[in-house]
Simulated assay, not measured.
Amino acid sequence: MNSLSRHVRNVRRVAGFTLVEVLVSIVVLSFGLLGMVGLQAGSLQANRDARLQSTAVVLARELAEMMRGNKDQALLATSPYLIGEISSNPLVPPTASYCLAIGQNCGTDKAAVAQAELTDWLARVSDALPGARVSICRDTAPFASDGTAQWTCTSTDNTDPILVKIGWSRPSLKTGDTTVQQASDRPSVVLPVTPGSTL
């Protein structure tokens, strides 16, 4: 009888110890899951930033192709493509034109075509990139001494390269950092354009 009660007490003690083990393992597992959730959030944010970067590069290349297609206008000293810096929301060029819209006609006016292409392109940049800022200008020093891109354009010579600079607002990728890098801080994409040469 005495050994039976001792056996029952040992079984109860072991059963209680198993419950404590289960609770400790649940706590350890929950900490691991919290870490995974943090990594997932950071991964989603980095993925979004990479998608926006890719979109900006595609848009910049698209404008470069438009300028190559209308190189007579792109190479002018007062080219309609060279709009300087625009940060309004939505982005609108100094001289907006909608002659490429359905039911409209630009005719043979290449300057009107350039203005209409730029108007349409800036509208798409506004839609695709949050808080977008654009600069299209001639520049020989697009990067500061520390290697970061800068918005200011330093050239006044008509033979200097044309650069398309695009920036947008993006949250910090550092864990726990809630700051947002504004488009005004620096361009994220700087693309040189070579429209060609006049014959």
Score class of each variant (00 low, 15 high):
residue 185 D to K: 14
residue 26 I to Q: 02
residue 87 S to T: 12
residue 10 N to R: 15
residue 43 S to L: 13
residue 132 A to K: 00
residue 144 A to F: 06
residue 128 A to L: 12
residue 143 F to R: 14
residue 151 W to S: 11
residue 84 G to N: 00
residue 159 T to C: 02
residue 92 V to I: 13
residue 68 R to H: 01
residue 115 Q to F: 00
residue 124 R to V: 12
residue 34 L to F: 06
residue 94 P to Y: 09
residue 108 T to Q: 12
residue 198 T to V: 11
residue 9 R to I: 15
residue 67 M to W: 08
residue 149 A to E: 04
residue 50 A to Q: 12
residue 194 T to V: 15
residue 23 L to R: 03
residue 186 R to M: 09
residue 20 V to A: 10
residue 116 A to E: 13
residue 60 A to L: 03
residue 144 A to C: 09
residue 58 V to W: 10
residue 138 R to T: 07
residue 75 L to C: 09
residue 73 Q to V: 01
residue 70 N to C: 06
residue 112 A to Q: 10
residue 170 R to G: 13
residue 52 L to D: 12
residue 162 I to P: 09
residue 77 A to F: 12
residue 81 Y to S: 00
residue 99 C to T: 10
residue 125 V to D: 12
residue 77 A to N: 11
residue 115 Q to E: 02
residue 61 R to F: 00
residue 104 Q to R: 03
residue 106 C to G: 07
residue 105 N to G: 11
residue 157 D to A: 06
residue 170 R to C: 06
residue 160 D to M: 12
residue 20 V to T: 13
residue 181 Q to Y: 09
residue 76 L to R: 13
residue 145 S to F: 01
residue 28 V to C: 02
residue 100 L to S: 07
residue 33 L to Q: 14
residue 118 L to I: 04
residue 89 N to A: 14
residue 88 S to P: 00
residue 141 A to K: 01
residue 177 D to R: 09
residue 122 L to S: 14
residue 195 P to C: 14
residue 118 L to K: 07
residue 8 V to S: 03
residue 148 T to W: 03
residue 86 I to V: 03
residue 171 P to E: 01
residue 19 L to R: 15
residue 87 S to R: 06
residue 191 L to Y: 10
residue 114 A to C: 05
residue 55 T to M: 11
residue 162 I to N: 10
residue 147 G to R: 10
residue 199 L to I: 11
residue 162 I to G: 08
residue 154 T to D: 15
residue 195 P to D: 14
residue 197 S to Q: 12
residue 1 M to P: 08
residue 38 G to K: 06
residue 78 T to P: 00
residue 155 S to C: 12
residue 179 T to N: 08
residue 109 D to H: 04
residue 41 A to L: 15
residue 70 N to F: 04
residue 39 L to N: 10
residue 120 D to Q: 14
residue 170 R to M: 11
residue 54 S to I: 06
residue 131 G to K: 05
residue 152 T to G: 04
residue 139 D to Y: 05
residue 166 I to E: 08
residue 183 A to D: 05
residue 128 A to H: 08
residue 12 R to E: 04
residue 146 D to I: 15
residue 59 L to F: 00
residue 55 T to V: 15
residue 160 D to Q: 12
residue 165 K to A: 08
residue 35 G to D: 06
residue 110 K to V: 10
residue 17 F to K: 01
residue 27 V to Y: 09
residue 64 A to R: 03
residue 95 T to Y: 02
residue 42 G to N: 10
residue 49 D to Y: 07
residue 107 G to P: 02
residue 119 T to W: 00
residue 151 W to D: 12
residue 71 K to M: 13
residue 190 V to C: 03
residue 34 L to V: 09
residue 137 C to H: 11
residue 39 L to V: 12
residue 182 Q to F: 07
